[in-house]
Design a protein around this nucleic acid. Structure first.
Lengths: 367, 367
DNA sequence: GCATATGAAGTGACCGGTCACATTGCAAGT
DNA sequence: ACTTGCAATGTGACCGGTCACTTCATATGC
């Protein structure tokens, strides 16, 4: 027996029968088996599956019955080869262990499911070399389009993307030289906006915590936010001594815990901090509680990403919101359009924007 | 031009060339093009790709050069059809918006990447009907194995899984009648263990918060934990009045915020609460803070899942840890073994176990 | 009543690889 | 010198669908 059903030989009679049939016939039924059983040609079966309206109801029923009786499941690999349509959309993200990127995947799936596309998800762990490797694997599956986080790719990766000759959408950033389509927001502007917000609240000793920009594993988007933040600070004539780069991507709660320590060592009288990620910001707040530093009384804290946890903690976190689900949905909708109509789509550049969400972790400076 | 490069006509000279070549030749190069350019047969090219050791180094170099010159990327759909090996492993989860399930995906990928398998991820949103639909789509891609969250499937889904005739691994549960292999832990035992822990701390008025068991969208695993919890409570002669089923899956922070309100309305003098998910537990703690209820002074809180946030909040959350990453890795390793060796593997039943993590959100009852 | 349009179903080639087996050249064994 | 063995490469069929046509029957128009 190929596969024993442990502890439950009686599991399911019907299923058992199906199983035995599959084993007996030696292999899975093909479209040919179905056509013979239904007494029609293979093409008719194919039509029943791809566009039933092309087949007379009576015939259709016979075919459907044959399909059900045999437990036939079409082989998409064969179909893809012939029709040159795989129904795959490739998605490459830095990681799935990040609620916002997971939201992108959800948004995309939602839209693509209806159009019968299957997402091929890959992740790079923020590693550009890995991105190239994964990309090669993905392209071998002949996706009809590819969605990836934008802005920084290896030379070879860019080349592969271009010669793949399929729609390419970069998301979660707004690169100045996109490969083709872009649906995202400016991380640099997010940083500036954060700084502006804190400056407008009357703070003058303002810090920030982000990841280090060294090594192969870099969070470019986070770094861009930090750069924007620094520039805005400088532009306002304020010191950037409180901008701390600490630890490596992916940034999580721990990061904030460690980074705020370093920041306060450096600039003890800091009034407000921006963390490049809400997760890090939550870590900052928790560490402050532990140290007896009142947030926002003594230190205001601001994050980025509007993660769910930010709204729940005490004090609730002021942050910058980007609608990642929407971003995924827009990307999906754009792809469905492009792939349905002929190809020569105008290059898209879609900024989904940013929004400061004011909650109570930031409190205007007392004068 | 097929695809305009917005705002950056000068993007990348090399890439531009590749693009033009692809466009000029009209379509992607095939193994035939490579073989002609290299002056060898198609089979030799195929060998260079799948097992270079079969080809003389000199020949190999010529082929590799031809591949590079043409920018050839093999078509796995064609290869799959012929070799009857797709290199796909299907993974079906309730959602990706859950750190623990995402961890499973990560653990699996890690192991499978090395063996050159591509994960085909699908999620069901805790909906059994959707599971069936997704399963059908997945099976059409001819995965060589399938990994899914265990215990409850539709009749039709079970049938499809059995007749697919590929290894099936159920994870994140330990169904009494598994389909084939199981790598997981007992959610029911997790519930009992949680109750035991709180009872041992000396509490007598103990509550719990979980999701409702009604409707199509059910979190069976959470419900099992609640059942185990109830049983242990009853077994100890304690009341189960404080066991609250509230809201629907997926459970997050909000759930705890709402559910603790209902629980305290019902049983105001509750001493300790178990939440079926850490996320919900965090919500409970934050809501208590807001209401001025001291945790753990007035109310002890315990969660499940050992999510990162639990270690960071104040007070740190007592919880039950399950190593989901390990779970994914084990599943991956088992699959690699099965697929490498011949098939007739012994049915696996692997319990990765549970571990109570004591932190300070639970404090022994004062007598 | 007959040419023509239209809908339903069938035919054979083909998609791009890989399988099983055949062929070739050359070193080793007797 | 003549097998024998093996490594390197080639040959043609085939995987399971779908494409572009063709065929056939029936409905339609004049």
């Amino acid at each position: 027996m190929t596969a024993e059903v442990a502890n439950a030989p009686e599991t399911n009679a019907a299923a058992g029968t199906a199983k035995r049939r599959a084993v007996r016939s030696g292999k899975r039924p093909t479209i040919r088996d179905v056509s013979q059983l239904a007494g029609v040609s293979r093409m008719t079966v194919s039509r029943v599956i791809t566009d039933p309206s092309l087949v007379l109801p009576a015939t259709r029923e016979r075919v459907l019955k044959a399909i059900a009786d045999l437990g036939y499941v079409p082989d998409r690999a064969a179909g893809s080869l012939s029709s040159r349509k795989t129904g795959f959309i490739a998605l490459m993200l830095p990681t799935l262990t990040n609620a916002n990127f997971a939201a992108v995947a959800h948004g995309l799936t939602e839209v693509l499911r209806e159009a019968d596309f299957q997402l091929l998800i890959s992740y790079t762990e923020y590693d550009i070399a890995e991105e190239e490797r994964q990309l090669r694997n993905l392209l071998a599956r002949r996706p009809e389009a590819i969605v990836l986080t934008g802005a920084s790719h290896s030379r070879e990766a860019t080349k592969m993307l271009l010669s793949a000759d399929i729609p390419v959408i970069e998301i979660a950033d707004l690169p100045s030289r996109p490969i083709e389509h872009v649906i995202g927001f400016s991380n640099y502007q997010a940083g500036r906006k954060a700084a502006r917000h804190l400056i407008d609240k009357g703070f003058t000793r303002i810090g920030a915590v982000g990841g280090t920009g060294a090594g192969a594993v870099i969070d470019h988007r986070g770094e861009e936010r930090i750069c924007g933040f620094e520039d805005e600070l400088s532009g306002a004539g304020l010191s950037t001594d409180g901008v701390v780069r600490f630890g490596t991507a992916p940034l999580s709660y721990d990061h904030g815990v460690g980074a705020i320590g370093e920041l306060l060592d450096r600039v003890p009288d800091t009034q407000a901090v921006f963390a490049v990620s809400d997760l890090s910001a939550v870590g900052v707040i928790m560490e402050c509680q532990r140290r007896g530093i009142d947030v926002p009384g003594q230190l205001s804290v601001m994050g980025f990403g509007d993660f769910e946890i930010g709204a729940v903690i005490n004090p609730p976190l002021t942050t910058i919101h980007v609608d990642f689900t929407l971003l995924g949905q827009r990307a999906g909708a754009a792809l469905v359009d492009m792939l349905a109509s002929g190809e020569p789509a105008q290059a898209i550049r879609d900024d989904v924007g940013l929004q400061v969400i004011e909650r109570s972790s930031v409190q205007a400076a007392s004068r």
